[in-house]
Simulated assay, not measured.
Amino acid sequence: MYITISPQKLGGAYSQSAGDFVSYLEKENEGKDLMDKEYFFNQYEDQIKPYQVIKEIDGNTAKLKLKEPKYYSLTISPSQYELKHIQNNPEKLKAFVREAMKEYAGSFNREINGRPVNIDDIKYFAKIEQERTYKGYDLAVRENKPFSNQIAHLKNEIRKVERGEVSGNIRQLEAEIQKLVREAPYKIQGKLIEPGMKKEGLQTHIHIIVSRKDASNTYSLSPGSKYKASEVEMHGKIVKRGFERDGFFQKSEQAFDKMFQYNRNYVESYAARKTLSKDPKQYFLSLKSLGINEKKIAFQLIRQTGMQLPVLHLPQSKVGFAVKQLKKIIETGIKSSSIGY
């Protein structure tokens, strides 16, 4: 389960309206019949149309400054294991989003009219998407790039030969291209993975657009606050402030596990990913201490493409240690026959 929170992009291709973002989220509906289209939903309603989303978000921005985000974007990306567990059921995903948004509301360390923030204070609209495409920053694209560049050069040479600009053996150049394709590390059905190519397997995820202002258009609720949950004295009064991101991520995971009786492995957890980035030694000690069956599942999750082990996102000084330790633990597991291939 990966959850991200991003502020509205200001300037460039994004205007002060939510219209551009809503249009972007409508991309999978292009060319579909009316019955096959995916609609927006919120805590209590389904089949909300795009123009309603734009109207509600754009009309809920009282007293926000020109350069302040008018909304935030949340993306919830269940793993392929989680999606398989619930049979990729859209109704179950909607039910989970509604529980997760309760946790979102509860993660604000704020009070409205003397009470904690609750789900009815949050104005949001969510949309399920089924597809993902490779981006330039994806590992597969980055590691394929040297091969893609050489192939592009060879194809350009072939065009020059065909136009008579240079002499050359087209058949030999084509053979070199095929050799590069075979040697490239990441392919789908024999084709090099490149930006824009659709990812294989279950890729269902949910985009959520959340108004910066509460549902009454009175209070500002920012999940991007630089303050963690805390209290501060202002004008002689104690004021609560901040948003607890870690709590939101962890409680959302727990809500999924409870709703669908999902037995989450250690390496799937937000807590484990955070430990890996902050303290790799502790991460690998925890991995090493797992029971045999849980360790076996952990290694399968690490190996398979559905699991993104964030070793690559570690600070450079920690990457070598992390990879070395992971390799050592996996090799030990193989030798003890605790991992099934």
Rank of each mutant, 00 (worst) to 15 (best):
E99A: 09
M259V: 03
V267I: 03
H153Q: 15
K187L: 10
K160F: 08
R142K: 13
K251E: 15
T61P: 00
E183H: 07
K328Y: 11
Y137S: 15
R115S: 07
Q300W: 10
Y104N: 10
M101F: 08
K37D: 04
L290P: 00
N29S: 02
V181C: 04
S220D: 14
G201M: 02
Y81K: 14
M197R: 05
G136I: 11
F248I: 11
S286Y: 04
S289K: 13
R98V: 06
I86P: 06
Q203A: 03
K237F: 09
A62G: 00
Y137Q: 13
L301P: 01
I177P: 06
S216M: 14
L66T: 12
Y51W: 11
S289I: 01
K288F: 04
G11R: 02
Q282K: 14
R245E: 13
N265L: 06
E99T: 04
G201C: 05
I3D: 00
Q87C: 13
M1I: 08
V161M: 04
G291H: 02
K328L: 13
S216Q: 15
G12D: 13
N149H: 07
S220C: 11
R241Q: 15
Y219S: 12
E45I: 00
K127L: 08
G11K: 03
G11E: 03
I208L: 04
P90Y: 09
R98M: 07
I3G: 03
S216R: 15
Y72D: 15
L312T: 13
D33M: 13
K296Y: 08
Y219R: 09
R159F: 00
L285R: 10
K240F: 06
K274E: 14
Y44V: 08
K278D: 15
I57G: 07
D257K: 09
A184V: 10
K296I: 04
K237W: 00
H207Q: 11
K67A: 12
I193D: 05
K65A: 12
K213G: 03
F40D: 06
A298I: 02
S23F: 00
I86R: 05
Q130I: 06
F147W: 06
S277L: 15
K226P: 08
Q130V: 08
G31F: 05
Q43D: 14
T275Y: 02
Q16H: 10
Q16D: 11
T133P: 00
G31W: 05
M234L: 13
N169A: 09
L66D: 13
N217E: 09
E157Q: 15
T204G: 05
I206N: 01
Q189W: 02
K318H: 10
N60A: 04
E91K: 09
Q282T: 12
Y283P: 03
I188D: 10
E194C: 01
R159L: 11
N88V: 08
K228V: 12
Y341C: 00
E157R: 11
Q178M: 12
Y227V: 01
V232K: 12
T275A: 01
G19I: 02
E174F: 01
